[in-house]
């Protein structure tokens, strides 16, 4: 998907392409260019949909200064994979996705898509999805993070995510008393 050509050559190619082509070119903070299906981008990202509708898409690569090339590659990869998967309208009529889709749970391919990411790549992708207003990608990535928390004690969760416990002992005691109804197993 990456269009990592020499600048002059790339521009030449784009001049040939008409404005109504079916992909858009996105530029990462470190200057790399990626092409993504216009239909999928507009469907999956409220921000890109707005830019496409408002004509603020730059044929030479729309600047996304907040997103690094690794995260943008994942975003584009996700959009293009989504474009090739079963259209969401048809999903709801099959009983399998009837069980998952409304509850925002990821499809099998979406699980695999995030499972292969490193810790940092996962969070880069959450930030990118958040920035681009990609509700479904946020579902998939946030679901993955919740899976990493599930069934773990507070200490284990702190360890996985490197969370620093900044409570004092007294504060923690106070919280546990205040929310005694939620700490039934202590």
């Amino acid at each position: 998907m990456e269009v990592d050509k020499g600048k002059g050559e790339a521009e030449e190619t784009r001049k040939v392409a008409e404005a109504d082509r079916d992909t858009v070119t996105l530029k990462s903070s470190d200057g790399k260019l990626f092409e993504v299906s216009k239909e999928a981008a507009a469907r999956l990202s409220t921000v890109l949909a707005g830019m496409i509708a408002g004509g603020s898409i730059d044929d030479n690569g729309t600047d996304l200064k907040q997103i690094g090339s690794e995260a943008l590659e994942n975003v584009v990869d996700y959009c293009n994979k989504h474009a090739n998967s079963i259209p969401s309208a048809a999903l709801i009529s099959s009983s399998i996705s009837f069980n998952t889709a409304p509850f925002k749970e990821p499809e099998e391919w979406e699980r695999k898509f995030v499972d292969r990411l490193s810790h940092d790549a996962l969070f880069d992708l959450v930030e990118a999805a958040n920035f681009l207003g990609m509700e479904r990608l946020l579902d998939v990535t946030c679901h993955k993070i919740s899976e990493m928390m599930k069934g773990k004690s507070p200490d284990q969760i702190r360890e996985v995510f490197n969370i620093k416990n900044d409570y004092t002992k007294e504060e923690l005691e106070e919280i546990r008393q205040e929310l005694a109804w939620a700490f039934y197993d202590d």
Partner: peptide, 12 residues
């Protein structure tokens, strides 16, 4: 119940 219990992780 897991969601509520995250309140002890940190002030955040």
């Amino acid at each position: 119940d897991d969601a509520v219990q995250t309140c002890v992780l940190a002030r955040r």
